[in-house]
Amino acid sequence: MLRIEYVYWLCGALMFAAGYADFAARRPAPGAFWTILALCFFGGDAVEAAAKAGNLLPAQVVGVAVIALAILAASGLTRRPADDSGAAQRKASAERLRNRLFLPALAIPLGTLVLVLLIPYLQSGAFALFDARQPTIVAFALACVVAAGAAMALTRATPAAALRESARLLDALSWAALLPMLLATLGAVFAATGVGEAVAHIVSAASPTGSRDACIVAYALGMAVFTIIMGNAFAAFPVMTAGIGLPLLIGQHHAHAAVVGALGMLCGYCGTLLTPMAANFNIVPVALLELRDPNAVIRAQVPTALVLFVVNVILLDWLAFR
């Protein structure tokens, strides 16, 4: 079967190729950055297994690597814009290949869609073709491999050229690619060090108890603001719901729990639209689209997020107390 680890190894191989290209072009800092990250991806499986068996040394080595990656990101890595040469050549090629150029690009979403719909038919008993832990990610990776093959066939490119292109775009992404993983790691550290409980303590001590509307606004604002800080509504939800939602809205004012849960989470999502801490949604696209303003995507989302937040508060007030 196709294990999720194979997907990670494939990512590792792409990072390794990017590191190799950087070293070959005498750019040691990004070269070291991608090589270290590639090793974390190749060894991740073994690190998790060893940690489960009680041997923490490999995990500690990765911990050192994480700090090294952050220092490399801050010192030697500048986001290199992907070069824009060959405009005339691209134009000629676009006129020759026409709409066939869309096929490999569409193969990624459509291939993923087809494979995800096939998942139930690709398993029998204990055997599942796609790793049962992350079947949609495996489907996505397989679609990417198929699309890369189609793109190579269409443009008559060699696998080496494909790796070169991937390396070029990885260098354009640079540390922005790593940020989602670092933020998730920070979330785990915050959880392990009791940051969430400390915040819940402060929040429940500081929140109003009297008026129903004040409780609703406190809960909704708390979800949005804590999501802005953590970058993730899932991290804010247990903290704010334990601090305000359960004792005040549900306990004291008899709100409907399912409504409080659903709309509380959605208030958090409005916060996600507003924060650089939600790196994979708000910072990675800035790097991918090569925008100059690091907050360009957030700026484009502010009006939608604010209006929707108000709508959520009104819905919460209306639906939770029917």
């Binding site: 999720i4 997907v7 990670y8 494939l10 990512c11 792409l14 990072m15 974390c40 991806f41 690190v47 998790e48 940690a51 490999p58 995990a59 500690q60 080595v61 990765v62 911990g63 690597a65 994480v66 700090i67 691209r90 134009k91 000629a92 090629s93 006129e95 150029l101 490999p104 690009a105 193969a107 990624i108 992350q134 990610i137 996505f140 990776a141 990417c144 699309a147 890369a148 793109a151 269409l154 443009t155 494909a162 790796l163 292109e165 991937s166 775009l169 990885l170 992404l173 790593l178 989602p180 993983m181 670092l182 998730a184 790691t185 979330g187 785990a188 550290v189 392990a192 994979n280 990675v284």
Partner: peptide, 29 residues
């Protein structure tokens, strides 16, 4: 703690997988 959390979140970087296809197609216009 840092190391374990980091490797257990590798799934967040699978977004790099389409880059080879995108790079080739962009070069071809």
């Amino acid at each position: 703690l840092l190391g374990r959390a980091f490797v257990s979140n590798r799934v967040l970087l699978v977004l790099i997988l389409p880059l080879a296809t995108i790079g080739l197609l962009e070069r071809a216009g």
